[in-house]
Write a protein that binds this DNA or RNA. Structure first.
Lengths: 342, 342
DNA sequence: CTGTTAGCGCCTTCAT
DNA sequence: ATGAAGGCGCTAACAG
């Protein structure tokens, strides 16, 4: 007759197992475990002990079925491989994990069909909301206004201004970078950056030029667009030094490019930062700390983007009706490649 | 009276909404939509049309409540930030995504307490199984044998041999690397690797020495353990060249170390690969392709580890009772840093 | 304070 | 071929 107390009977223990073991009714057991006040302390203890013995965990599915909310959200990324999704994902996971919501992860691999498939699957699981993480900052198609749950776009904003998007501020990033170089006493600043097809590249360049203009200065030569690679950084640096040997700083569109630039400077016996300061964007540790000297870089605060998206989604689930694109600040992380002239 | 057909009435449409709109009973609607054969073709069409009009998605929670299975698994990583979890995670997501199971992602950040918390939360959501992804290949504590669902450990095996673990074969990786260098005609091979506290470092070294021994050779000097960084690669390479200028190949414990080694060789005017061949482990694109020349590296096939873990979990959920540590093969990706002597 | 009852949305016997 | 009824595990009314 140990059946009621046998946890291995058949699947996880249910509330009625607990109630039976504690010798109370279902409702009382429920109240006791959920901290409802209408239950005698001694009874509550008995129920709790029973639940403990059976290692009872309330079935969230059943609970969600009743409540209408599941405490579950979908995280839809378009590119897990890329390194930008990860910090955002971590920030979101972090913000949610603090509360009691669980995250469904789906990777659409940049495929719209697959994305649609995932959205359907997630809706079938009755997620309370969706976060859509892009792989680059260019605007992306909206999932549509007809979804039964709120959606927040992170990193890549939605093309539909009625949607809510959280993105890093790349224009400000460009400004901050130039401001830092100016503060280091540099005035002949060149800009080598990545693929001009990326909005991030154009915005960072625009921010940089605006900040220079505010200071009554201009870039040395035009911004050099190319690719997001060390190889391009090396090639562009070589051309730059040939044409403008007077540069005293190179602002690079990414840490990868910056590493390439630093290498070429070393090879040509320019001292960094004494002769030429160098800085990048993204603050990608593996690169910034391996460089000689370590790279100053603009951190886009992606974890914060993830956290903010999660919080915005919380708000939306609770009924808040925000929309539009919200930009988040970034910050300069100073290292040896731009130490001020002494 | 358009209430029944109004999708915006209150939350998502339910099966009874569909049944009402189609003018049939709940049971018939269910049969029609699930392809049961006991329903007239014309009726089925009517139901499907109604479901379409209401954009009805069956509530998987309700379904799971009844079925006992939720079509859901938990992916418990201990370190999202590190780059090893991601490919594994992608492989698993991929293997699952093909079917109809959704993945809950949790990051324990290397904290056992947080991990325990996540396990409880996942069990509360009635996941059908768990995949535990480690951040390094050293064995980790088991979640225990008392869990109500199957568990598969990936990358880091469980300390309990009764658990099932899927890990890359680092010993074989070491052997393959040396075999490749031998095939390139190298015989004076040195080994610079990372933190000796990592099993991966020790196993790769052991595999390398075994392969050399099989060929009647030995390493040039002892394996040089240190850190997983370019900086260590540079320092160790400098010492190595001072002491053993005769080396014709350096096997490096990681791509980062290898990059450092290549840099020092360049600076000292040794040609790579003509004078000294260099190779690393992990096949981390960002590093291998930025290096001059591009780095040969051993790919640990981590995506496959993730996929295999997912498939093993499938099997376990279906009732298979495997246990022990299963190792997966890796592969050498040849690039310019080891091109055979001509 | 405690127990009984009625569903949440769905699927599955069992009648009809 | 269709419909009525029961139940998955839980909570929120209502009784007692």
């Amino acid at each position: 007759m140990a059946q009621a107390t046998d946890p291995s009977r058949s699947g996880p223990a249910t509330l009625s197992d607990v109630a039976r073991l504690a010798g109370v009714s279902l409702a009382t057991a429920s109240k006791a475990l959920n901290g409802r006040s209408q239950v005698r302390a001694e009874t509550r203890q008995r129920v709790i002990a029973a639940a403990e013995r059976l290692s009872f965990r309330p079935n969230q599915l059943a609970r969600g079925l009743l409540a209408g909310r599941t405490g579950t959200v979908g995280l839809l990324t378009s590119d897990l491989e890329g390194r930008f999704s990860i910090p955002i994902l971590m920030g979101a996971e972090d913000a949610f994990g603090a509360g009691e919501v669980a995250v469904f992860l789906c990777d659409a691999r940049g495929d719209a069909i697959r994305e649609q498939h995932h959205v359907r699957a997630l809706l079938g699981r009755r997620v309370d909301g969706l976060i859509v993480v892009g792989s680059r900052t260019d605007p992306r198609p909206s999932l549509g206004r007809e979804l039964p749950v709120p959606v927040v776009y992170a990193y890549a904003p939605s093309e539909d201004p009625a949607d809510l998007s959280i993105v890093p501020d790349n224009v400000e990033a460009g400004r901050l970078a130039v401001d830092h170089l100016l503060a280091c006493g540099r005035t002949r600043i060149a800009h080598i950056t990545g693929d001009p097809g990326y909005l991030a590249a154009r915005e960072r360049a625009a921010g940089a030029e605006a900040a220079l203009s505010d200071a009554g200065l201009a870039l040395v030569g035009a911004p050099r667009f190319g690719m997001w690679s060390e190889g391009w950084g090396r090639a562009a640096a070589a051309m730059l030094l040939d044409k403008h040997p007077e540069v005293d700083a190179v602002l690079c569109g990414s840490d990868q490019i910056a590493r390439g630039v630093v290498e070429v400077l070393r090879e040509r016996d320019h001292r960094v930062p004494e002769d030429v300061a160098v800085m990048g964007f993204d603050n990608w540790q593996v690169l910034t700390s391996a460089s000689r000297p370590p790279l100053t870089s603009v951190d886009m605060n992606l974890e914060q983007v993830g956290r903010a998206a999660a919080q915005a989604l919380f708000g939306a689930i609770a009924g808040a009706r925000r929309s539009g694109v919200q930009t988040l600040s970034c910050r300069v992380v100073v290292r040896g490649s731009t130490a001020a002239l002494s």
